[in-house]
């Protein structure tokens, strides 16, 4: 059993498959589509159309890049506002053509910089939250590595949210939390523990529906598992009455309150 911080390390580990790895491993026929039609193409978010078996789907993934050169090109997986706007454009496109949406979340957080603020980072995330809440096709989000705060949530308002065993999801990075609490970013291990950010914690708080086991499995096996899970879940979601689907999506997030029950 890993500690919270060991999970954080595993989620950030070099060589852990990134968003594109999941897209290539699970879907066929992937055609990448670029740009937000407003400002630019954000390389930290990859999206397009693909097939899940015979079913056309829209897939969107955060991409951190593998080697140093790729990482720089991908801005280390930290999206700018145009990334979130590209994602939203592709979701609207999916809605028009009745394709379900699958998002893979893996970011340390939305990029923080002058340009990001000038172009409305907060507004871009807020718009995604509102629009995803009412998107008229099923959405599934899978947390595959780092789930860094609002920047991660902007692709994780979904009918079901799943999480890999070694992924984490947090309102603030362990380092950020440690420097606020103890004025010492090096106490990130203790902070990781306090934040309750592991997949088991998320399951207990009902923040995710499923934890995808990693122990003793290779990633190709995980992709195969996810593929059939996605297929079955989407079949079920697509057969639901639309207003029931949207209502369930709203209630899914509505339940998180001060009186919330925990799941054992």
């Amino acid at each position: 059993m890993k500690t919270a911080y060991e999970k954080v390390q595993a989620a950030r580990a070099k060589g852990r498959p990134s968003g594109l790895g999941f897209i290539r491993g699970i879907f066929s026929d992937f055609i990448e589509l670029h740009g937000d039609r407003r400002f630019a193409d954000d390389t930290a978010i990859v999206g397009g159309i693909a097939r899940l078996r015979e079913k056309p789907v829209t897939v969107i993934a955060m991409e951190k890049g593998g080697n140093t050169k790729e990482k720089l090109f991908r801005n280390f997986g930290s999206p700018n506002p145009e990334g979130y706007r590209k994602a939203l454009r592709l979701m609207k496109q999916a809605e028009k053509f009745h394709r379900p949406v699958i998002c893979f979340v893996d970011t340390s957080g939305a990029f923080c910089g002058i340009g990001a603020e000038e172009r409305g980072q907060g507004q871009a995330i807020a718009e995604n939250l509102v629009e995803m809440m009412g998107l008229r096709v099923p959405i599934i989000a899978v947390l595959i590595g780092e789930g860094g705060s609002g920047g991660a949530l902007a692709l994780a308002v979904a009918d079901e949210v799943w999480m890999l065993e070694n992924a984490f999801y947090s309102v603030i990075s362990p380092e950020g939390c440690a420097s606020i609490l103890w004025k010492d970013a090096k106490k990130n291990k203790e902070a990781a523990e306090c934040l309750k950010l592991t997949a088991e914690d998320m399951k207990r708080m009902r923040v995710v529906e499923r934890v995808i086991p990693e122990e003793g499995r290779t990633f190709p096996e995980i992709y195969a598992y996810l593929e059939s899970l996605l297929w079955n879940t989407l079949e079920e979601k697509e057969n639901r009455d639309l207003s029931a689907l949207l209502d369930a999506r709203y209630q899914r997030f509505r339940q998180f309150g001060p009186m919330q029950e925990m799941q054992e």
Partner: peptide, 13 residues
């Protein structure tokens, strides 16, 4: 923790 983050989605809904 994460329950604070979920409030962003909840209020947006």
């Amino acid at each position: 923790g994460i329950l604070s983050l979920m409030q962003m989605a909840k209020t947006s809904g």
